[in-house]
Amino acid sequence: MGDLKGKTALVTGSSRGIGRGIAQRLADDGALVAVHYGTNEKAAKETAESIAGAGGQAFTIGAELGVPGDAEALFAAFDAELAAHGAEPGLDILVNNAATRFSGRIDTATEEEFDRTIAVNVKAPFFIIQHGLRRIRDGGRIINISSAVTSTAHPSSIAYSVSKGGLDTLTLTLAKDLGERGITVNTIAPGWVETHVTAARTATPEGRAALAAYSVFNRIGRPADIADVAAFLASDDSRWITGQRIDVTGGSML
């Protein structure tokens, strides 16, 4: 605890699920956390309130991703809230977690769904990083949340898989580019995690058992399982790790 004291973090899509878990953990470790939401302001405020209730520091910022000018809008809100909270300008930890997912094989996926998936899952992180680099301090951390779908074949989620593959490549390339500034860039690839996204599939005992069976531990992942790895990558303990895709699937598909 306290390893991130004095640091500022921005976690996109942190109103619920994995993003909320990461925001809470980074705040537990001492960071001032910007809780970003696209549409669900209520859930974002609940995340910030839970952080404050645990003794941490957080504020919310709203910006729709996947639309023109999204990165500019995100950081305009971020800069304004930092100033309102009397915090020093700048950023130490950027977590690109926000994502959208359309199910469908290649013969049913529509152009609109594909474009939206790429816009939110690849284009938005690309330009958020571009604008963020004007604020990220030397020695900072960039953490991209990818997926197990980039290491195993999931034809029913092909557009999502393609987008996350692009994010993995972005991580690798940026790690080499930003090394001279001491900024590490890494990817976390979760498997099945118990969140609002998987709620429909875990509503029955049979559904829960099917998802749990993917892992060698025979359970579904929890947001904390992902958040703990994110906290490590955000800390100084990970200073010699960059350009890596960390599999955090509980040994799924071994």
Rank of each mutant, 00 (worst) to 15 (best):
I142W: 02
G139H: 10
I93Q: 05
A119K: 01
S156G: 11
G166W: 07
P68Y: 03
A153D: 13
G139E: 08
H85V: 02
A84Q: 15
S50F: 01
P68S: 06
G104V: 00
F102D: 11
F102A: 14
G55R: 04
L94G: 10
T150V: 13
D79Y: 06
E113H: 13
F126I: 09
A73I: 00
A77W: 00
L174N: 01
R105T: 14
V149Y: 06
A63F: 03
L94A: 11
I129D: 08
I106H: 04
P68N: 00
A84W: 09
E72F: 13
G166I: 07
F78A: 09
G90Y: 07
I93R: 09
T108Q: 06
R116E: 12
R116V: 08
S156T: 11
A83T: 09
I93W: 07
T47G: 10
I136A: 11
I129H: 11
F127Y: 14
I61R: 01
T110Q: 05
D79H: 06
E88N: 13
A119I: 03
E72Y: 13
V162I: 14
A109W: 08
G56A: 04
A73M: 04
R134I: 02
I136D: 09
G90D: 06
L65I: 01
E88R: 12
D177H: 15
D177R: 15
L172P: 01
G132H: 09
A58E: 02
S147H: 08
Q57A: 13
L167N: 00
P68T: 05
T47M: 04
T171P: 01
K123R: 14
A119S: 14
L74T: 12
G104A: 08
E49I: 00
A148M: 14
G69H: 02
L174D: 06
E81V: 05
D138T: 10
S147T: 12
A87R: 15
A52N: 11
A52V: 12
A48P: 05
A124V: 04
T117W: 01
Y160G: 06
Q57H: 09
G86F: 08
I51K: 01
V162K: 01
T184Y: 03
I128M: 15
T171W: 04
I128H: 15
A153G: 11
I128Q: 15
T171C: 07
H85R: 15
G179S: 02
I128K: 06
F127I: 05
D177F: 10
L91D: 11
I143C: 08
T173F: 09
A99L: 03
V67K: 04
E113Y: 02
F114K: 00
V95W: 06
R101I: 13
R181Q: 13
D177L: 15
K164E: 02
T108H: 02
S103M: 11
G62C: 08
A148Q: 14
A148V: 12
